[in-house]
Amino acid sequence: TFVEFNGKKVEYPTPEAAEKAAKKLAKKLNLKVTKKNGNYKLE
């Protein structure tokens, strides 16, 4: 499962880990999380 932000793509071993990381990053970077095709994107 990938988390995409600032043009970077980071892969996580589980969807749970990706979701957790996405939410944490979104909060830190003041972005919102969108889920697309099972992957997460911060914008």
Rank of each mutant, 00 (worst) to 15 (best):
T1V: 14
Y40Q: 02
L25T: 04
N30P: 02
E19D: 07
G7P: 00
L42Y: 01
A17F: 05
V3K: 00
K8L: 13
T34I: 14
E43M: 09
L31N: 01
L31F: 03
L29H: 13
F5S: 02
N37D: 15
L42G: 01
N39W: 09
K32P: 03
E4S: 07
P15H: 10
L29Y: 15
P15D: 12
K20P: 00
E16A: 11
F5C: 05
T14E: 04
T34S: 10
T34L: 10
E43V: 14
N39E: 08
A22P: 00
L29P: 02
P15K: 10
F5T: 02
N30M: 08
T34R: 06
V10E: 07
K28Q: 12
K23H: 14
K23P: 00
G38I: 01
G7A: 05
V10L: 12
E4C: 11
T1Q: 05
L42Q: 01
K32M: 09
L25I: 11
N30E: 06
K41M: 15
K27P: 02
G38K: 05
A22R: 01
L25V: 06
K41F: 15
F5N: 01
E4M: 08
N6H: 12
V33T: 04
E16N: 08
E19T: 05
E43W: 11
E11Y: 15
E43G: 06
Y12D: 00
T34E: 08
V33Y: 07
K9E: 06
K35I: 15
Y40A: 02
N30W: 05
A18R: 00
K8A: 09
L42V: 12
T34P: 00
E11R: 14
V3A: 00
K20T: 11
L42H: 02
Y40I: 10
A17V: 07
K32R: 12
E11H: 14
K8I: 14
A21N: 04
L25C: 09
K8R: 13
N39D: 11
A21R: 03
V10G: 03
A17Y: 06
A26Y: 01
E4W: 08
K28D: 11
K8C: 14
K28C: 12
K27V: 10
F5P: 00
V10H: 10
N6V: 05
V3E: 01
V33F: 06
K35F: 15
A21G: 04
N37W: 05
E11K: 14
A22W: 02
T14A: 03
N6M: 14
L42D: 01
V10K: 13
V10M: 12
K35P: 05
P15Y: 05
